[in-house]
Design a protein around this nucleic acid. Structure first.
Length: 506
RNA sequence: GGGUCGCUAGCUCAACUGGCCAGAGCAUCCGGCUCUUAACCGGACGGUUCAGGGUUCGAGUCCCUGGCGACCCA
């Protein structure tokens, strides 16, 4: 808590010279006994409620006689001497306030004239339509609720500079309707995912963010330290291993929507912290999960956008209907034109084909990893319509159950839409002995320098040894789903405060 | 990590192949106006051109180093 002294009112920080005018207004208000940051001012209606209630009502020049008290940010002011029009905004609702000196008096009018665009303002008075037909509050009282010391961006052009939009989201949201739209879509998507899972009898749970052993995905973790236990802990890279413990504990359907953290680079599609939905269902396999995934995405699309068609890179993509399923190996064979490719094929053949497509194979890579790399290089970005790519190699799927009819691959799929991965799912591996072998293979890769490979998690293995039902698990990248449904190209557009380098000198 | 592009007033943008005092609109301030809709009219204020170094008679512009960001690639 700081109390502004007269000295503070006079203080002008370097680079803040433009604030001097507003600071002197602030000082003047305080001198006149006006609290520029008051508390306890109630409103009778939101701006949206007034606009809705009077839509289509009142003739031009008519007074409803109904008094309201409304509030919002002052975004526009038009002065006419002894008359002034103010426009208040709250979210996407705007309402005009008419201030007249014969109502407010000279003092009241002078205080209205002292308001700046950006100030938070309350106005009380009857709802009227002006002679020109604009719904307005004819103010008998105007109250400053919060003085703005910094000016808002240009009223017409808004804020364009993307860096400032991300760094100062409060300004972006205040002036850019598009930013508000995207985050409204985001909320609708998450609401729809929850509603569908709740309706299907899934229990929403919360599992730890701090993990003693990072697991559940192939990724580098953030490390932190607990002082009292003198213990290194890791921010979770996935929720998988805890959620599966819950199914083992007898909760047949669970899900969690929450942040996960991966210590990786930044890009249009990657933010170090992002939101993932994970769900697990006992007695289900990956084909059941396909049905669930399709239902979740389609419901989110309908409820967030009112349609099942989205636009990706300028082309329409239809999310409705039943989605295609294609095995990974088949896609790679088609893309390379090499039907002899397979997980049993001569490893030199795969390495040659990989090299001929510009995939630089590393030493420890087996057939499965090579096929996956070829798929990511040649195929993934070409899959525009929703596609379940199925049957990923065992080598790159340490937590997925081996396929019931092909030992080289797992019962796993990824959902690709618009060339981008949206979901990853499998029939879960529930055999503790095989899981131990998989972990050990991962540990060898880790020893060989693969920093994303999983460490052995003995506690998880012990949990498995108590017995697990067969289950199907799903992970959906919520940010990417929002990007798709909101039609924006960068993950930073769907995360309110994306990770950025600190500003120099900040 | 590599490449390309960008950074000019609070905001949105100008400024020719290096050449007059770096301009405009909005915002702000002063004056006018009781029905505006980005109100309008008159006037004023506003700059470390991202930072530092270099080339030049002269740098927003060319060169080097660094910062931050966007896009593409790995």
């Amino acid at each position: 808590m700081t109390t502004d002294s007269p000295a503070a009112a006079q203080r002008v920080e370097p680079g803040d010279e433009g604030l001097a005018e507003r600071r002197s207004k602030l000082a003047r208000l305080r001198r006149d006994g006006v609290d520029p940051y008051p508390v306890g001012v109630r409103v009778s209606d939101s701006l949206a409620a007034v606009a809705e209630r009077f839509a289509g009502r009142l003739q031009a020049g008519e007074d409803s006689g109904e008094r309201v008290r409304v509030a919002g940010r002052l975004v526009l002011r038009r002065g006419h001497g002894r008359l002034a029009f103010l426009v208040l905004r709250e979210a996407d609702a705007e309402l005009q306030v008419m201030a007249q000196s014969h109502v407010l008096g000279d003092d009241g009018m002078a205080r209205v004239a002292d308001l700046d665009v950006g100030d938070w303002v309350a106005a009380a008075g009857p709802v009227v339509r002006t002679r020109r037909g604009e719904l307005s509050v004819s103010a008998t009282e105007v109250t400053l609720l919060g003085k703005a010391l910094r000016p808002l961006p240009d009223k017409w052009h808004g804020l364009r500079d993307v860096e400032t939009r991300y760094r100062q989201r409060h300004v972006d949201l205040a002036v850019n309707a598009e930013a508000r739209r995207v985050f409204t879509v985001r909320a609708a998507v998450i609401r729809a995912l929850r509603a569908e899972l709740d309706a299907r009898g899934y229990l929403e749970v919360e599992t730890p963010l701090l993990h003693p052993i990072p697991g559940g995905a192939l990724a580098r973790p953030f490390v932190t330290h607990h002082n009292a236990l003198d213990l290194d802990l890791y921010l979770r890279i996935a929720k998988e291993l805890y959620l599966k413990r819950l199914v083992a504990g007898g909760l047949p359907r669970v899900y969690e929507i929450g942040r996960v953290f991966r210590n990786e680079g930044l890009s249009t599609r990657h933010n170090p912290e992002f939101t993932m939905l994970e769900s697990y269902q006992a007695y289900a396999d990956y084909t059941d999960v396909m049905e669930l995934t399709q239902a979740l995405v389609q419901r989110a699309a309908r409820e967030a956008t009112g349609a099942t068609t989205v636009t990706v890179d300028g082309a329409d993509v239809e999310l409705g209907g039943t989605w295609t399923r294609r095995p990974l190996l088949e896609l790679v064979r088609t893309a390379t034109g090499r039907d002899e490719l397979g997980y049993d094929a001569d490893p030199r053949l795969l390495r040659d084909v990989a090299a001929s497509h510009g995939v630089k194979a590393e030493d420890g890579w087996g057939a499965g990893k090579l096929v996956l790399e070829l798929y990511e290089k040649l195929v993934e970005h070409t899959l525009r319509e929703p596609t379940f790519v199925t049957d990923y190699p065992v080598e790159v799927s340490p937590l997925a159950r081996r396929h019931r009819s092909d030992p080289h691959v797992t019962e796993r799929f990824e959902l690709i839409v618009g060339g981008r991965e949206l979901a990853n799912a499998f029939s879960e591996l529930t055999d503790p002995d095989e899981q131990r072998e998989r972990f050990e293979a991962q540990a060898r890769a880790r020893a060989g320098g693969d920093t994303e490979a999983m460490p052995v998690d003995a506690d998880y293995l012990r949990a498995m040894e108590f017995g697990m039902p067969p289950m199907g698990g799903l992970g959906i990248g919520v940010d990417r789903l929002v990007m798709l449904l909101a039609g924006v190209p960068s993950i930073r557009d769907v995360i309110l405060f994306p990770t950025l380098r600190p500003e120099p000198g900040a």
